[in-house]
């Protein structure tokens, strides 16, 4: 067992666990809001991954002193991934809010936010359409 390797990459292991948790929730949960939450966890895992990349061993916060007397000995953490993730967080929030807005509209039209019930309703609609417009491969092929 290489403990230094395992512990030294703790962030990355956690990233994988969190990413998989999120992805599992998205796939396994039937509740539309829970799916969005899963998507959020999935995205947050990626934020953690990026932040971990940016860490430089022994590095400090990437802020220059106000007098701009920069000591060449000082090691700074890479700030670029943080900036990227600020953008990704904004994107994540936009996705979440749009997703939830859609869920609200789905609730208004279908009166449920459970995927199974929605599928039932849609199958019923498709069946009626088949009766009216002729049978063929419809639905979710």
């Amino acid at each position: 067992m290489d403990w230094a390797y395992l512990l030294g990459h703790l962030n990355y292991w956690l990233f994988i666990v969190m990413m998989m948790t999120g992805l599992y929730i998205v796939i396994a949960r039937g509740n539309l809001v829970k799916k969005i939450v899963g998507l959020n966890i999935f995205q947050t895992a990626v934020f953690m991954f990026y932040i971990s990349i940016g860490k430089v061993t022994g590095g400090t916060a990437p802020i220059f002193p106000t007098d701009m007397k920069i000591d060449p000995e000082t090691v700074y953490t890479n700030p670029l991934p943080h900036v990227l993730i600020l953008t990704a967080i904004v994107v994540g929030i936009a996705t979440t809010s749009l997703g939830l807005a859609l869920v609200v509209r789905i609730r208004e039209s279908y009166d449920t936010i459970e995927e199974d019930d929605i599928l039932d309703i849609e199958t019923r609609i498709a069946r009626e359409e088949n009766r009216e417009y002729g049978d063929a491969m419809g639905g979710r092929a």
Binding site: V26, L32, K35, L39, L98, G99, L102, S109, Y110, I118
Partner: peptide
Amino acid sequence: ALTAAYDYLI
């Protein structure tokens, strides 16, 4: 269209 958009979003 709503569920289609939702699926597409996910």
